[in-house]
Structures are given as structure tokens and as C-alpha cells.
């Protein structure tokens, strides 16, 4: 199948061709009959110039439109996207029309990343605190032991 770029050029060229065909010499001469009667050769020459200039100017302008809009590049890119999606039967996602809702989806990957990061950090902190708690409990045990030893000394003196 023709590419989008080819299709674009083809339809534009076709319109131009048909327009040129419509503006035939016979039609031109028929409209400018009074001048044609006076100078038929000049009329032919003017018509030829008219056709030539019309085609050249329109082609130049269309080329400018294509360059300005980067149409060739965009058409190629779109053809590639269409090709990549050829096995996709379901309609693809489209903006809902409510930007704040659509923006939520765009934020989801960052939120999920942050969620994962927080889970990891929390796990590390819980582990650190577990070790700290073990040290604290050991310290409390030692203090209790020291208290008991002091109590035993006191009772002995008593």
C-alpha cells in the first residue's frame, strides 16, 4: 500500500492535473474571446504561461507546507506506528477530555516507584530498629543484673 507521503503527493498532484485540464486552452480562449479574436497566437502563449506558472507556484507552495509542517517525517512516523499496531485489534487509549484524570495515569509510574522505594526504606528501618531493640533489651538486662548485684551486696552488709 502507498505510504502517507505518497498518498498526499498523489492526491495533490491529481487535483492539480484535473484543474489544469479544466482550464484548457479552449476554455481559456472561450472566456477571453475578444482577445483571442485579435491575437490568437498570443492567447495560446499566455495560456501556456498561465498553466506553467500555476503548476510551478502551487507545487512550490505545497512543498513549503510540507517542509513547514515536517509532513514527510511525520507521515513516515505515523506509517511506522500503524505498522507496529497492526496486530492490535482493540481501540487504543485516547485522552478522556479531562486532563486532570489523564495526568493521573502519567503520574502512576512515579508513584509506584516511590511506593517501592518507601517499602524498601521501611524494611531497612524496621530491621535496624530490630537490632537496636535487641541491644536496648540486652542493656536493660545488664542494668537489672547490676541492680541485683548491688542489692545482694547491700543485704550482705545489712
Amino acid at each position: 500500500p502507498p505510504t502517507r507521503a505518497q498518498l498526499f503527493d498523489t492526491v495533490v498532484d491529481t487535483v492539480l492535473e484535473k484543474l489544469v485540464a479544466a482550464g484548457s486552452y479552449e476554455r481559456f480562449a472561450s472566456c477571453y474571446r475578444c482577445f483571442y479574436k485579435l491575437q490568437p497566437e498570443v492567447t495560446k502563449s499566455i495560456h501556456e504561461q498561465f498553466i506553467f506558472q500555476l503548476q510551478a507556484s502551487i507545487k512550490e507552495e505545497i512543498q513549503e507546507v510540507k517542509e513547514e509542517g515536517k509532513l514527510e517525517m511525520l507521515f513516515d512516523a505515523l506509517d511506522r506506528l500503524v505498522e507496529e499496531a497492526k496486530d492490535q485489534q482493540e481501540p487504543a487509549w485516547r485522552p478522556s477530555g479531562t486532563p486532570e484524570e489523564d495526568a493521573l495515569s502519567a503520574m502512576v509510574p512515579y508513584l509506584l516507584k516511590h511506593h517501592s522505594y518507601l517499602q524498601r526504606v521501611l524494611k531497612e528501618k524496621v530491621e535496624d530498629n530490630k537490632q537496636l531493640a535487641e541491644a536496648v533489651l540486652a542493656g536493660r538486662g545488664r542494668i537489672k543484673e547490676l541492680q541485683q548485684l548491688i542489692q545482694a551486696r547491700r543485704e550482705a552488709w545489712q
Binding site: V126, K130, L132, V136, L137, R140, Q147, I150, Q151, R154
Partner: peptide, 26 residues
């Protein structure tokens, strides 16, 4: 995660105060 450990913290000031009593007794 360590709520139990934190909520059962002894009164260290009281422990030190009690040692003062021990020394007075001695």
C-alpha cells in the same frame, strides 16, 4: 515495629535515685 520495647522503657532516673538510697544506707 518496636512499640512494645519503647512502651516498656524503665525509669532510669528512679534506678539512679535508688542507688543514692543504697549509699546512704551503707
Amino acid at each position: 515495629s518496636q512499640a512494645e520495647v519503647l512502651s516498656s522503657k524503665p525509669n532510669y532516673q528512679q534506678i539512679l535515685d535508688e542507688q543514692g538510697e543504697v549509699l546512704s544506707f551503707m
